[in-house]
Each structure stands twice: as C-alpha cells, then as structure tokens.
Simulated assay, not measured.
Amino acid sequence: MSLPQIWQQPAELRQAIRRKEFRGHTAGQAPGYAQGNLAILPRAYADEFLRFCRLNPKPCPVIGMTEPGDPRVPELGADIDLRFDVPGYCVFRDGEKVGEVADLGELWQDDMVGFVLGCSLSFEAALLDALVPVRHIDDDHTVPMYNTNLPNGQAGRFGGNMVVSMRPMTPAQAIRAIQVTSRFPAVHGAPVHFGDPAAIGIADLARPDYGVPSEIREGEVPVFWACGVTPQQAIRVARPPLAFTHKPGHMLVADVRNSELAAF
C-alpha cells in the first residue's frame, strides 16, 4: 500500500482541497499546525451555540468564529474560506443529516455564522514526538469516534451527549499521552476516560459511530478524548433549519501552530 502524501504547509493543503485534489482525512497532515472542527449555523442560533461551547469547553473549544455571512476566519489564516477549505462537509436540515458535499459554494447563506473548534488531530504530532504511536495514522484511516452517555451542558436549544475519539495505547503510553495532551486545552486537552468503554455508554469498539475502527492489541487499553463531532449531536437536538459541519475526520487545517493556539 502506497503511503499518503503529507502536506507540510497548511496553505498548500487548502489549495489542493479547493482544486478537489485532496479529499481524504487530515490526520497526520501539516504536522504541528492546528486543525479545526466546523459548525456553521444561522445567525439566529449563533449566540446560543457560543454559550453551549463555553459550557462545554472540553469537546467544543472555540478557536475561531466568523462574522455573519462572512466565510473568512482571519485569526486562523489570511486566505481561509470555510466554504471551500475542508475536504468534506455534512449538511443538516431541521437537525437531520441529509447528505455530504465537497464544498458549500452553492449552499452558503448570507446569515451563516461559522465556528471553528479545536481538534484532537492537532496534538497528534506532539504525541508522535513523545514516541507515543497513533494507530489510525499508522494505518491511514480516520480516527474512530463514538457517541457516549456523557451529558453536555444545556444552552438554550443545544444539548445532547458528548462524542469521543479513541486511540489504543499501552498503559505506559496512555500515561505519557495524558501528560502531553494536557498541554493543549484548546484542542480538547487530556482524555476524558480510558479503559472500560461501557462505563461511558459505548457498546462495541468495533462499531464506531463515525470513522473507522482501530485494532486494540494485547496489552492495550482504549483512551478516549472529547471530540469536536459533539456539535453534530447538539445540532440534532436544536434542529436549526440549515446547518453545516465538517465530515468527521476531514478538518480545516489552519496557519496557526498548536503552540500559538488559544481557545476563546
């Protein structure tokens, strides 16, 4: 199996996405640069959603926000355009996912407000630097993600339960991963759980709700981080007439380095 191309510079990766030359997951891309989840909502829902994020900073750390109708996020990159710079988008109508699209050029409306949320794919370069392997990067697939029974704080119409991402590790690797990721609160920080998945409402690790399952080998435990797919559950609860998110695992890659990143 040929190895995927690794783009080192975020702007070059975004240009490849705009040209429809890159449609894959972004794990391992532009190492050291911040990656972001997306939630794009009508202006009438934006204040409630921002309060929801502030009540739930682990899964929803806001690292960028647009003005209504403006797809640019200059604090994350001078040329970023949320309509075109993500490899895949999900479309929600009245809280139900109705499809996936390659860009939002024909769907964008002049009252949409975009939120960029910190993503755990950002800290994976630091894990690799600390000699902690990341299974889904090694196997070139999207990180597995699961719905849980962990309730989010309710803000107006937004609520639901947390979504988590999972990485299998030995206990020693898990301890090191906790030390490393604690330094990155703007991209979910330390894990929220490790060990028994049933304790957080996950019935079968081989059947993730999003992404692709990762093999858990002898002597390893599953380690779970809060995940920026959580807003998709909140959108299902709030039922806005139209909303967009990133396709899970297919992120916005910013020009800001992880070391420079701060949540609102």
Results as ranks from 00 to 15, higher is better:
154 Q>H: 14
142 T>A: 13
144 P>L: 00
1 M>W: 01
168 P>H: 06
175 I>K: 10
103 D>C: 08
56 N>K: 08
2 S>G: 12
119 C>N: 09
239 R>M: 11
55 L>T: 04
80 I>T: 06
3 L>W: 12
236 R>T: 11
82 L>E: 04
51 R>I: 07
205 L>T: 11
172 A>D: 13
111 D>N: 10
58 K>R: 14
194 F>V: 02
47 D>K: 12
206 A>M: 13
68 P>F: 05
235 I>Q: 09
174 A>F: 02
37 N>S: 12
158 F>D: 07
223 V>N: 00
211 G>W: 07
145 M>D: 04
12 E>R: 11
179 Q>W: 11
236 R>P: 06
259 S>F: 07
242 L>K: 00
201 G>P: 02
68 P>R: 08
144 P>C: 00
9 Q>P: 07
67 E>K: 14
242 L>Q: 02
53 C>Y: 06
196 D>K: 00
85 D>K: 12
130 A>W: 06
133 P>A: 07
59 P>S: 03
232 Q>R: 10
37 N>F: 08
154 Q>M: 14
93 R>G: 01
7 W>G: 03
18 R>N: 05
162 M>V: 12
200 I>L: 04
44 A>R: 15
248 P>R: 07
178 I>M: 14
24 G>S: 13
4 P>L: 01
188 H>M: 11
101 V>M: 03
67 E>L: 14
12 E>K: 15
219 G>C: 11
29 Q>R: 04
126 A>L: 03
59 P>D: 00
169 M>R: 06
201 G>L: 01
39 A>F: 09
14 R>L: 06
76 L>M: 12
108 W>H: 10
66 T>H: 03
96 E>F: 12
104 L>T: 00
182 S>F: 10
3 L>M: 13
207 R>H: 13
172 A>P: 08
7 W>F: 15
143 V>Q: 01
247 K>R: 15
111 D>H: 04
60 C>I: 02
166 M>R: 01
256 V>T: 13
261 L>P: 03
59 P>C: 03
18 R>E: 02
32 G>D: 07
142 T>G: 05
107 L>P: 03
264 F>G: 13
162 M>C: 10
184 F>D: 01
43 R>P: 03
184 F>W: 10
65 M>T: 11
119 C>F: 06
35 Q>Y: 08
45 Y>F: 15
80 I>Y: 05
239 R>D: 07
20 K>G: 10
62 V>Q: 00
146 Y>H: 00
1 M>P: 14
196 D>S: 05
17 I>D: 02
257 R>K: 15
261 L>G: 06
51 R>P: 00
98 V>L: 09
42 P>L: 14
45 Y>T: 08
223 V>A: 02
2 S>W: 09
255 D>C: 08
63 I>R: 01
57 P>A: 06
120 S>L: 07
249 G>R: 01
91 V>G: 02
260 E>P: 02
52 F>D: 04
57 P>V: 08
113 V>F: 05
258 N>F: 07
53 C>M: 10
160 G>A: 08
107 L>N: 07
70 D>L: 06
165 S>R: 03
125 A>Y: 06
244 F>S: 04
32 G>T: 07
111 D>E: 09
78 A>V: 11
109 Q>S: 10
243 A>S: 07
65 M>R: 15
3 L>F: 12
119 C>R: 05
204 D>H: 13
